[in-house]
């Protein structure tokens, strides 16, 4: 079985400051990997590097997506090819309606796959049904992308986009932060609805509570740009109970073991 994602020895820096310092990770179809770790450990950087953010310079290592070099490709090519990043901080875009963004994104992916574009009617029917499952009001479609959305609405909007685009690899960067209990469940349902044997997800989170709903196959702890510990879902419970202090103590040992 071909892995969806293989990351080997990935190092990345910004302005010559190293942030990712040797990441190895293999993600197979059907798997959900949770990535946890203290603030500033490099979780978002990893997510953004995978999506193609040019702010970060990859200084070593490689990444294969469905067997092909991922890092050589432009962000939009990755997106059309099924890599989806739900942003920790979704960006507000004044003057561009949400519905336009959704439609353009979906049709770009469909063209890439050689499928016909959806016409306005079919698209609207599809997006409405997804909107409903995310318990979002219709008017969010016609407002500018994320502009004036509440924190929770922004997060739901990211999941809505994912639901519409049906990516092969979804990278969710703190899809749960700032959500109330009900919204958390809606978002978790949205994520679970996309669980499928051919699809994989990387779920970045600080909290066990999301993982109660979206049960991961693996949990990794990122610290200072390295994965310092990997385990099953129990690892998340341990972190919840003990914090990151004991992990940081373990950093030199983990690094030495490589």
């Amino acid at each position: 079985m071909q892995p969806i994602l293989e990351i080997r020895g990935l190092e990345a820096s910004v302005d010559d400051k190293p942030i990712l310092r040797g990441i190895d990770l293999t993600v197979n179809p059907g798997e959900i990997h949770a990535i946890m770790g203290p603030n500033g450990s490099g979780k978002s950087t990893l997510a953004q590097v995978l999506a193609g953010r040019e702010t970060f310079t990859v200084t070593a290592g490689h990444v294969r997506y469905l067997g092909a070099d991922l890092l050589a490709r432009a962000p939009e090519e990755r997106a059309r090819d099924g890599v989806f990043l739900a942003f920790q901080y979704p960006v507000e875009i004044a003057g561009v309606s949400n519905v336009y963004l959704l439609k353009a994104a979906l049709n770009a992916a469909r063209r890439h796959r050689g499928e016909p574009e959806l016409d306005a009617m079919d698209f609207l029917a599809l997006v409405r049904s997804k909107l409903k499952s995310m318990e979002m009001p219709d008017d969010l479609l016609y407002r500018s992308v994320n502009e004036g959305f509440s924190g929770g609405e922004k997060k739901r909007n990211e999941i809505l986009q994912m639901a519409l685009l049906e990516p092969r690899l979804a990278i969710l960067d703190e899809a749960d932060s700032g959500l109330d209990i009900d919204a958390l469940q809606v978002v978790a349902r949205g994520i679970n609805a996309l669980r499928a044997p051919e699809r994989a997800m990387i779920v970045v989170t600080h909290y066990q509570r999301l993982l109660d709903y979206v049960v991961p196959d693996y949990v990794h702890v990122l610290s200072q740009g390295r994965i310092v510990r990997s385990g099953g879902k129990e690892l998340a419970f341990e972190l919840e109970a003990r914090g990151y202090g004991w992990i940081d103590d373990a950093v030199p040992a983990a690094a030495g073991a490589r």
Binding site: A74, E76, A79, P90, V96, L101, A104, A108
Partner: peptide
Amino acid sequence: ENELFYLRARGFDAAAARSLLTWAFARS
């Protein structure tokens, strides 16, 4: 840059993202 990257991460090529944002700025 954040807006450009967001659009590219949704499948807009760089030129299209630029003209979309430019247009959005004008249109308002």
